[in-house]
Simulated scan of single mutants.
Amino acid sequence: MRISGHDYLQARFAEADWRVCPDRTTCTSSASRPRAISFLPRPLHEIQTRNRLDQQTEDWQRW
């Protein structure tokens, strides 16, 4: 799957599972669509995490 030009992995739940889930309303507000979760592949996730941490430093914000 591609989102905003990046490859993502996506997990979707079977209807039989999400219809009966007692916590469904905490995951999604959709009444008719299943919950789906998207993940960046590990190397891209690590880069994103490192970049977000860097952006919080004074040096990065000054630059």
Rank of each mutant, 00 (worst) to 15 (best):
M1C: 06
M1R: 08
M1S: 09
R2S: 10
I3T: 09
S4D: 15
S4N: 13
H6N: 13
H6V: 07
H6A: 10
D7A: 11
D7G: 12
Y8R: 09
L9F: 14
L9M: 13
Q10G: 10
Q10C: 15
Q10A: 13
F13S: 07
A14W: 09
A14F: 11
E15G: 04
A16C: 08
D17T: 13
W18G: 08
W18D: 04
V20F: 07
C21Q: 11
P22S: 10
P22I: 11
D23M: 13
R24I: 13
R24N: 10
T25F: 07
C27N: 06
S30W: 06
S32E: 11
S32Q: 10
R33G: 07
R33F: 06
P34M: 10
P34A: 14
S38N: 14
S38A: 15
F39A: 12
F39C: 09
L40R: 00
L40S: 00
P41F: 04
P41V: 02
R42G: 02
R42P: 04
L44S: 06
H45L: 09
I47W: 01
I47K: 04
T49D: 02
T49K: 02
R50P: 00
R50E: 00
R50Y: 03
N51W: 08
R52F: 06
L53A: 02
Q55H: 07
E58Y: 07
E58I: 04
D59L: 10
D59V: 04
W60P: 00
W60A: 08
Q61R: 15
W63V: 00
W63S: 01
